Simulated scan of single mutants.
Amino acid sequence: MTDPLASEVRRLRTVEGLSVREIRARTGVGRNRVYELLRGVPPPEWTRRPNARDDLRRRAIELRASGCSLAEIAACVGVAKSTAYQWVRDVPASVEDDAVRQRRKAHAKAMSEARWTAHRAERDAARARQHAAAARVVGPLGERDLLLLGAAIYWCEGAKSKPWRRDDHVQFINSDPGLLALFLRFLAACGVDPSVPSYRVSIHESADAEAATSWWAGRLGLPADRFRRPTLKRHNPSTVRRNTGTDYHGCLVITVPRSRELYWRIEGMIAELFERAAGAGVEETDRDA
Protein backbone atom coordinates (compact mmCIF):
# COMPACT_ATOMS: atom_id res chain seq x y z
CA MET A 1 0.00 0.00 0.00
CA THR A 2 1.41 3.36 -1.05
CA ASP A 3 2.08 5.95 1.63
CA PRO A 4 0.16 9.07 0.58
CA LEU A 5 2.52 11.35 2.53
CA ALA A 6 5.58 9.89 0.80
CA SER A 7 3.91 10.24 -2.58
CA GLU A 8 3.04 13.88 -1.89
CA VAL A 9 6.53 14.75 -0.71
CA ARG A 10 8.08 13.14 -3.79
CA ARG A 11 5.58 14.89 -6.06
CA LEU A 12 6.40 18.27 -4.53
CA ARG A 13 10.07 17.55 -5.14
CA THR A 14 9.94 16.17 -8.66
CA VAL A 15 6.97 17.93 -10.17
CA GLU A 16 6.91 21.30 -8.44
CA GLY A 17 10.66 21.38 -7.77
CA LEU A 18 10.36 22.57 -4.19
CA SER A 19 13.27 22.69 -1.75
CA VAL A 20 13.27 20.77 1.54
CA ARG A 21 12.33 23.91 3.43
CA GLU A 22 9.38 24.59 1.11
CA ILE A 23 8.20 20.95 1.36
CA ARG A 24 8.33 21.17 5.16
CA ALA A 25 6.28 24.39 5.09
CA ARG A 26 3.71 22.82 2.75
CA THR A 27 3.33 19.48 4.56
CA GLY A 28 4.33 20.25 8.17
CA VAL A 29 6.70 17.25 8.20
CA GLY A 30 10.01 17.42 10.10
CA ARG A 31 13.30 17.92 8.33
CA ASN A 32 14.74 14.45 8.96
CA ARG A 33 11.47 12.81 7.88
CA VAL A 34 11.46 14.77 4.62
CA TYR A 35 15.04 13.67 3.88
CA GLU A 36 14.06 10.08 4.62
CA LEU A 37 11.10 10.21 2.24
CA LEU A 38 13.24 11.84 -0.46
CA ARG A 39 16.00 9.20 -0.27
CA GLY A 40 17.07 8.35 -3.83
CA VAL A 41 15.27 11.37 -5.33
CA PRO A 42 17.81 13.77 -6.91
CA PRO A 43 17.42 17.45 -6.01
CA PRO A 44 16.26 19.87 -8.69
CA GLU A 45 18.95 21.65 -10.63
CA TRP A 46 18.09 25.05 -9.23
CA THR A 47 19.04 23.90 -5.68
CA ARG A 48 22.55 22.95 -6.79
CA ARG A 49 24.78 25.89 -5.94
CA PRO A 50 28.02 26.13 -7.93
CA ASN A 51 31.24 25.73 -5.94
CA ALA A 52 32.94 29.11 -5.87
CA ARG A 53 36.35 27.44 -5.86
CA ASP A 54 35.89 25.22 -8.90
CA ASP A 55 37.55 27.78 -11.15
CA LEU A 56 40.41 28.20 -8.70
CA ARG A 57 40.94 24.46 -8.51
CA ARG A 58 41.07 24.20 -12.31
CA ARG A 59 43.55 27.08 -12.41
CA ALA A 60 45.71 25.42 -9.75
CA ILE A 61 45.82 22.17 -11.72
CA GLU A 62 46.83 24.07 -14.85
CA LEU A 63 49.62 25.85 -12.98
CA ARG A 64 50.89 22.59 -11.53
CA ALA A 65 50.90 20.96 -14.95
CA SER A 66 52.98 23.87 -16.25
CA GLY A 67 55.62 23.24 -13.56
CA CYS A 68 54.74 25.76 -10.82
CA SER A 69 55.59 25.01 -7.20
CA LEU A 70 53.00 24.80 -4.44
CA ALA A 71 54.07 28.19 -3.08
CA GLU A 72 53.62 29.79 -6.50
CA ILE A 73 50.23 28.13 -7.00
CA ALA A 74 49.00 29.23 -3.57
CA ALA A 75 50.11 32.81 -4.18
CA CYS A 76 48.61 32.91 -7.65
CA VAL A 77 45.13 31.58 -6.81
CA GLY A 78 45.00 33.11 -3.32
CA VAL A 79 44.69 29.96 -1.16
CA ALA A 80 46.77 28.30 1.53
CA LYS A 81 49.59 25.95 0.52
CA SER A 82 47.76 23.09 2.21
CA THR A 83 44.69 23.75 0.06
CA ALA A 84 46.80 23.97 -3.08
CA TYR A 85 48.42 20.66 -2.19
CA GLN A 86 45.03 18.96 -1.75
CA TRP A 87 43.96 20.21 -5.18
CA VAL A 88 47.07 19.20 -7.13
CA ARG A 89 48.46 16.22 -5.18
CA ASP A 90 47.26 13.81 -7.89
CA VAL A 91 48.84 15.82 -10.69
CA PRO A 92 52.21 14.17 -11.57
CA ALA A 93 55.21 16.48 -11.44
CA SER A 94 56.92 16.87 -14.76
CA VAL A 95 60.64 16.38 -15.39
CA GLU A 96 60.94 20.09 -15.93
CA ASP A 97 59.32 20.66 -12.53
CA ASP A 98 61.90 18.40 -10.88
CA ALA A 99 64.72 20.31 -12.52
CA VAL A 100 63.25 23.61 -11.32
CA ARG A 101 62.91 22.20 -7.81
CA GLN A 102 66.54 21.06 -7.78
CA ARG A 103 67.73 24.47 -8.95
CA ARG A 104 65.74 26.19 -6.24
CA LYS A 105 67.07 23.79 -3.62
CA ALA A 106 70.65 24.46 -4.71
CA HIS A 107 69.99 28.20 -4.65
CA ALA A 108 68.51 28.03 -1.17
CA LYS A 109 71.51 26.04 0.05
CA ALA A 110 73.93 28.57 -1.44
CA MET A 111 72.05 31.43 0.22
CA SER A 112 72.10 29.63 3.56
CA GLU A 113 75.83 28.97 3.28
CA ALA A 114 76.51 32.62 2.49
CA ARG A 115 74.39 33.73 5.44
CA TRP A 116 76.12 31.39 7.92
CA THR A 117 79.74 31.64 6.66
CA ALA A 118 80.55 34.70 8.76
CA HIS A 119 78.89 33.17 11.83
CA ARG A 120 80.86 29.94 11.46
CA ALA A 121 84.13 31.81 11.02
CA GLU A 122 83.47 33.82 14.19
CA ARG A 123 82.52 30.66 16.08
CA ASP A 124 85.65 28.82 14.93
CA ALA A 125 87.86 31.75 15.94
CA ALA A 126 86.26 31.88 19.40
CA ARG A 127 86.73 28.14 19.77
CA ALA A 128 90.41 28.41 18.81
CA ARG A 129 90.94 31.17 21.41
CA GLN A 130 89.36 29.02 24.13
CA HIS A 131 91.48 26.03 23.10
CA ALA A 132 94.66 28.12 23.31
CA ALA A 133 93.74 29.55 26.71
CA ALA A 134 92.87 26.09 28.05
CA ALA A 135 96.14 24.63 26.70
CA ARG A 136 98.14 27.24 28.60
CA VAL A 137 96.47 26.09 31.83
CA VAL A 138 97.67 22.49 31.40
CA GLY A 139 101.42 22.95 31.29
CA PRO A 140 103.79 20.02 31.91
CA LEU A 141 102.45 16.87 33.57
CA GLY A 142 104.27 15.79 36.70
CA GLU A 143 104.10 12.40 38.36
CA ARG A 144 101.38 13.55 40.79
CA ASP A 145 99.28 14.88 37.89
CA LEU A 146 99.55 11.60 36.03
CA LEU A 147 98.65 9.56 39.10
CA LEU A 148 95.54 11.62 39.87
CA LEU A 149 94.43 11.81 36.25
CA GLY A 150 95.02 8.11 35.68
CA ALA A 151 93.11 7.11 38.81
CA ALA A 152 90.20 9.36 37.84
CA ILE A 153 89.87 8.13 34.25
CA TYR A 154 90.23 4.54 35.39
CA TRP A 155 87.39 4.97 37.86
CA CYS A 156 85.27 6.30 34.98
CA GLU A 157 86.17 3.74 32.31
CA GLY A 158 87.94 0.84 33.98
CA ALA A 159 86.66 -2.44 35.43
CA LYS A 160 85.73 -2.11 39.10
CA SER A 161 85.25 -4.69 41.82
CA LYS A 162 81.71 -5.04 43.19
CA PRO A 163 80.52 -6.22 46.61
CA TRP A 164 78.81 -9.16 44.90
CA ARG A 165 81.82 -9.83 42.60
CA ARG A 166 85.26 -9.26 44.06
CA ASP A 167 87.71 -8.91 41.19
CA ASP A 168 90.64 -6.70 42.13
CA HIS A 169 92.51 -6.42 38.85
CA VAL A 170 93.18 -3.50 36.51
CA GLN A 171 91.45 -3.59 33.13
CA PHE A 172 90.82 -0.47 31.05
CA ILE A 173 88.81 -0.25 27.81
CA ASN A 174 88.24 2.75 25.56
CA SER A 175 88.08 3.81 21.91
CA ASP A 176 89.83 7.20 22.33
CA PRO A 177 93.57 6.99 21.49
CA GLY A 178 94.29 10.11 23.56
CA LEU A 179 92.65 8.71 26.68
CA LEU A 180 94.39 5.37 26.23
CA ALA A 181 97.76 7.10 25.82
CA LEU A 182 97.13 9.02 29.03
CA PHE A 183 96.29 5.79 30.85
CA LEU A 184 99.52 4.19 29.57
CA ARG A 185 101.42 7.18 30.97
CA PHE A 186 99.66 6.55 34.27
CA LEU A 187 100.77 2.91 34.23
CA ALA A 188 104.33 4.00 33.50
CA ALA A 189 104.19 6.39 36.48
CA CYS A 190 103.08 3.39 38.56
CA GLY A 191 106.08 1.39 37.36
CA VAL A 192 104.24 -0.78 34.79
CA ASP A 193 106.21 -1.21 31.56
CA PRO A 194 104.21 -1.37 28.27
CA SER A 195 105.47 -4.94 27.75
CA VAL A 196 103.70 -6.15 30.91
CA PRO A 197 99.96 -5.67 30.13
CA SER A 198 98.09 -7.69 27.55
CA TYR A 199 96.12 -5.90 24.83
CA ARG A 200 92.99 -6.94 23.00
CA VAL A 201 90.84 -5.27 20.36
CA SER A 202 87.06 -5.37 20.81
CA ILE A 203 85.37 -4.68 17.48
CA HIS A 204 82.27 -5.49 15.44
CA GLU A 205 82.55 -8.64 13.34
CA SER A 206 81.80 -6.65 10.19
CA ALA A 207 85.07 -4.70 10.56
CA ASP A 208 88.68 -5.73 9.85
CA ALA A 209 89.93 -6.92 13.25
CA GLU A 210 93.46 -7.66 12.04
CA ALA A 211 93.88 -4.19 10.57
CA ALA A 212 92.50 -2.64 13.77
CA THR A 213 95.03 -4.58 15.88
CA SER A 214 97.90 -3.31 13.71
CA TRP A 215 96.53 0.23 13.91
CA TRP A 216 96.37 0.26 17.72
CA ALA A 217 99.87 -1.25 18.05
CA GLY A 218 101.33 1.41 15.77
CA ARG A 219 99.28 4.30 17.15
CA LEU A 220 100.27 3.72 20.78
CA GLY A 221 103.67 2.11 20.23
CA LEU A 222 102.68 -1.19 21.83
CA PRO A 223 104.47 -4.54 21.38
CA ALA A 224 102.58 -6.63 18.82
CA ASP A 225 103.34 -9.89 20.63
CA ARG A 226 101.34 -8.74 23.68
CA PHE A 227 98.09 -8.56 21.69
CA ARG A 228 95.56 -11.31 22.30
CA ARG A 229 92.87 -12.62 19.96
CA PRO A 230 90.31 -9.86 19.18
CA THR A 231 86.82 -9.97 20.66
CA LEU A 232 84.23 -9.79 17.88
CA LYS A 233 80.90 -8.15 18.67
CA ARG A 234 77.87 -9.51 16.84
CA HIS A 235 76.70 -7.25 14.03
CA ASN A 236 73.01 -6.34 14.00
CA PRO A 237 72.04 -5.20 10.45
CA SER A 238 68.95 -3.41 11.76
CA THR A 239 71.06 -1.09 13.93
CA VAL A 240 72.12 2.18 12.33
CA ARG A 241 75.80 2.51 13.27
CA ARG A 242 77.97 5.57 12.66
CA ASN A 243 81.25 3.95 13.73
CA THR A 244 82.00 2.33 10.40
CA GLY A 245 84.50 2.74 7.58
CA THR A 246 88.29 3.01 7.58
CA ASP A 247 88.32 5.28 10.65
CA TYR A 248 86.64 2.66 12.84
CA HIS A 249 89.19 0.72 14.93
CA GLY A 250 86.98 -0.58 17.73
CA CYS A 251 88.00 -0.41 21.39
CA LEU A 252 91.31 -1.35 22.97
CA VAL A 253 91.27 -3.40 26.18
CA ILE A 254 94.35 -3.06 28.44
CA THR A 255 94.66 -5.76 31.12
CA VAL A 256 97.42 -5.59 33.72
CA PRO A 257 98.27 -9.05 35.16
CA ARG A 258 98.83 -9.52 38.88
CA SER A 259 97.55 -6.00 39.49
CA ARG A 260 95.68 -6.39 42.78
CA GLU A 261 97.93 -3.99 44.66
CA LEU A 262 97.75 -1.47 41.80
CA TYR A 263 93.96 -1.68 41.95
CA TRP A 264 94.04 -1.05 45.70
CA ARG A 265 96.29 1.95 45.05
CA ILE A 266 93.76 3.37 42.60
CA GLU A 267 91.00 2.76 45.14
CA GLY A 268 92.94 4.68 47.78
CA MET A 269 93.57 7.69 45.54
CA ILE A 270 89.93 7.81 44.44
CA ALA A 271 88.67 7.56 48.02
CA GLU A 272 90.90 10.47 49.06
CA LEU A 273 89.84 12.53 46.02
CA PHE A 274 86.19 11.98 46.91
CA GLU A 275 86.86 12.87 50.53
CA ARG A 276 88.61 16.10 49.62
CA ALA A 277 85.91 17.02 47.09
CA ALA A 278 83.23 16.50 49.73
CA GLY A 279 85.15 18.59 52.26
CA ALA A 280 85.89 21.46 49.88
CA GLY A 281 82.55 23.14 50.64
CA VAL A 282 83.15 22.88 54.39
CA GLU A 283 86.61 24.45 54.07
CA GLU A 284 85.23 27.35 52.02
CA THR A 285 82.49 27.92 54.61
CA ASP A 286 85.08 28.01 57.40
CA ARG A 287 87.18 30.54 55.50
CA ASP A 288 84.15 32.75 54.86
CA ALA A 289 83.28 32.68 58.58
Rank of each mutant, 00 (worst) to 15 (best):
T2M: 12
A6W: 10
R11I: 06
L12V: 07
L18H: 02
R21E: 09
R24C: 14
R26S: 04
Y35N: 12
E36D: 10
V41A: 08
P44W: 01
R48Q: 09
P50Q: 08
N51I: 00
A60M: 10
A60T: 11
I61N: 02
S66M: 14
S66G: 11
C68E: 11
S69R: 01
L70A: 02
A74R: 02
A75V: 01
G78E: 01
V79C: 06
A84N: 03
Q86A: 15
R89N: 09
D90H: 07
P92Q: 08
S94N: 03
E96P: 00
V100H: 06
V100T: 04
Q102P: 07
Q102V: 15
R103V: 13
R104D: 10
K109S: 03
K109M: 08
K109D: 13
S112K: 09
E113C: 04
R115Y: 08
W116N: 08
A128K: 14
R129M: 14
Q130T: 05
Q130E: 13
H131K: 04
H131E: 12
P140G: 01
D145R: 02
G150D: 02
A151P: 02
Y154Q: 09
C156V: 02
E157D: 06
G158V: 09
K160S: 08
R165G: 10
D167S: 14
I173R: 03
P177N: 08
A181E: 05
F183P: 02
A189N: 02
C190Y: 06
A217M: 08
G218T: 04
L220H: 04
G221F: 00
P223E: 07
A224W: 05
F227N: 00
L232H: 10
S238H: 12
S238T: 11
T239D: 12
V240Y: 07
T244D: 02
T246H: 13
D247Q: 08
G250H: 03
L252N: 01
I254D: 07
T255C: 03
R258D: 15
R260H: 15
L262V: 13
E267Q: 10
I270R: 11
L273V: 04
L273Y: 02
A277L: 12
G279E: 14
E284T: 10
T285L: 13
D286W: 08
R287Y: 15
R287G: 12
